[in-house]
Design a protein around this nucleic acid. Structure first.
Length: 513
RNA sequence: GGUCCGUUCGUCUAGGGGUUAGGACAGUAGAUUUUCAUUCUACCAACAGGGGUUCGAUUCCCCUACGGACUACCA
């Protein structure tokens, strides 16, 4: 019988989640939904020294904002609770013991100083790859080299120790990566990794294998940085007797900094000139001073746009469609269309995606952003008017906040007039022509853009002025600026009275050359 | 240094033994617009290099170069 597909996103709560992590979570989620499986969130907090308060909540809030729904996790519980590794601490010990009993692991009593000395010695001897392995372990203080009674005595006293995996000396380890195909690594390249730390906590390597097995994970989708330790994980599954249900691996290509000089890290924060985090994050720097890192949400990105963009960094559907809702991503996603090579971040493209999604929103929804932002400035605007304005200015906006910026002209009379246009287009004839238009305007019965245009055309004909000569001047008189949305639509929304007053103000303020 | 992974327009990518190597973003030009923006159209622009295999390689293989990851009692 086919096993139910179960995937997990397993971040460590050492700070905010960066976009690479979000993408990993996204691909996991897409696969789970595509295959009708479950998505788990497991918190890997086995390093007590790197705990960052708030990080866990931040991760969950971020995923929620992105629309990534967790089926099992610390918030929602599930059949394999707890989902926080620190709370699973008692479970790992027995598996480490099992490995010791079967001869696949051993106790090591070396102090950090002894380990440093060992590495220094190997380096001095120009050993290409200094590591604790099948060769060097013979020179170290562990249960393989020490007499049995001494080991027993060391364990009984409170001497700190770790448990290390006994990696075989000569063995080819291979596994079939869903993205990269067969990966073959010789065991001599793998060191005797620590499985249990001296504080009694498991390391990532042990905890992740035990939990993935217990939680019945079928696919491990994670970043390429894990590829070198995947052979070690394969060994662990084998020695624990779980090889037949070992999950399939898929190592995702990395997300690089825009200049391509390395993987994007959370330490890049705001240094790159664009957010690397989904949500704004409040943390502390090395000196304990409070820091704020900007987020996509606070910068005005819509989650749909952010996700669509992120999905395309390393995956594509093979068609020419660029815009995908989450449901469409789920429908079209496939792990074998994930590329092998790393991707850099393209700020232009995220912006483009945001514009697409912003414009696709109904005017009524856009109006809500507008009303909200305007209210923050102390401006109250009727909904119907906000809808009209939003519809008019949305083509000019990248972010929701641009709407209110573009809308300012409706609420503030011009305080200055574009000088270029004035010097070129403003003259006595135009001034009188506009004054006449201002007089006629309040009597007009048709205040649609078309009606206003008809009136303007008629008045200018009477004045003997061509429309082209006066339009720029009219725009500047009404808005002060040389550029902006459709003028007739502006006047229509502004209304005849307000427009007329603005024109009259301009006529009286602007000297005629 | 060692091990592993990778390399198609500036960027994200499609393609795959015989193609005018396709799309998107950006850029440039034109059209529309009273203006800027939008929109539309066009243009610019790539198979890292060298060897094989083959009638034929961008595609398959090898080498080189370059880039990246990993190399902790961190994940």
């Amino acid at each position: 019988m086919e096993r139910e597909v179960r995937v997990r996103f397993a971040p460590s709560p050492t700070g905010p989640l960066h976009i690479g992590g979000v993408r990993t979570a996204l691909y996991n989620y897409l696969l789970a939904r595509k295959l009708g499986g479950k998505m788990l969130l497991r918190i890997e907090d086995t390093d007590q020294n790197r705990f960052v308060p708030g990080a866990e909540q931040y991760i969950m809030d971020s995923l929620r904002w992105c629309g990534i729904v967790i089926d099992e996790g610390i918030e929602q519980g599930g059949p394999h609770a707890p989902y926080r590794q620190s709370e699973r601490k008692p479970m790992y010990r027995q598996y480490a013991q099992q490995l010791i009993d079967s001869g696949h692991a051993y106790y090591a009593f070396d102090t950090p100083e002894e380990l440093d000395a060992m590495r220094a010695r190997l380096q001095a001897a120009k050993v290409p790859n200094p590591q604790y392995n099948s060769i060097t372990r013979a020179q170290m203080r562990n249960s393989l080299t020490l007499p049995e009674d001494e080991v027993k005595q060391l364990l009984d006293s409170d001497t700190p120790y770790v448990i290390r995996l006994k990696v075989p000396r000569k063995e080819e380890i291979r596994f079939n990566d869903l993205i990269r195909g067969w990966v073959v690594v010789h065991s001599s390249a793998v060191d005797d990794k620590v499985l249990m730390k001296s504080d009694g906590m498991p390391t990532y390597h042990l905890a992740n294998i035990v939990d993935d097995h217990l939680m019945e994970i079928t696919h491990v989708i994670r970043g390429e940085e894990w590829l070198p330790s995947a052979p070690l994980h394969v060994l662990l599954y084998r020695y624990l007797g779980w090889e037949s249900t070992m999950p399939q691996f898929a190592h995702l290509p990395l997300l690089l900094k825009p200049d391509g000089t390395g993987k994007l890290s959370k330490r890049d924060g705001d240094k790159l000139g664009f957010p690397v985090f989904p949500l704004e994050f409040h943390g502390t720097d090395a000196d304990g001073q409070p820091t704020v890192s900007s987020g996509y949400r606070e910068s005005g990105y819509l989650p749909e746009a952010f996700i669509n963009f992120l999905a395309f960094l390393g995956w594509n559907p093979g068609t020419q469609q660029e815009l995908f809702t989450m449901d469409e991503l789920i429908e079209h996603f496939s792990i074998d269309r994930v590329s092998k090579s790393p991707a850099r971040f393209d700020q232009n493209k995220v912006r483009w995606y945001n514009e697409q999604y912003l414009r696709a929103k109904p005017d009524a929804e856009l109006a809500q952003y507008l009303i909200h932002d305007l209210e923050a400035q102390g401006l109250n605007v009727p909904t119907d008017k906000a809808v009209q304005i939003a519809g008019l200015v949305k083509e000019r906006a990248t972010f929701p906040a641009d709407l209110a910026k573009e809308a300012q002209l409706f609420f503030e009379r011009p305080t200055s007039y574009d000088e270029q246009v004035i010097s070129k287009k403003w003259n006595a004839q135009v001034a009188t022509g506009l004054a006449a238009f201002a007089q006629e305007l309040p009597t007009s019965s048709d205040v649609t853009p078309d009606g206003i245009k008809a009136l303007l055309t008629r008045v200018m004909e009477q004045q003997g002025i061509k429309l082209g000569q006066v339009l720029q001047a009219l725009r500047v008189a009404v808005t002060g600026a040389a550029a902006g949305p459709d003028l007739m639509a502006i006047i229509s929304i502004l209304g005849p009275q307000e427009t007329a007053e603005r024109i009259e103000a301009a006529v009286s303020k602007l000297a005629v050359a």
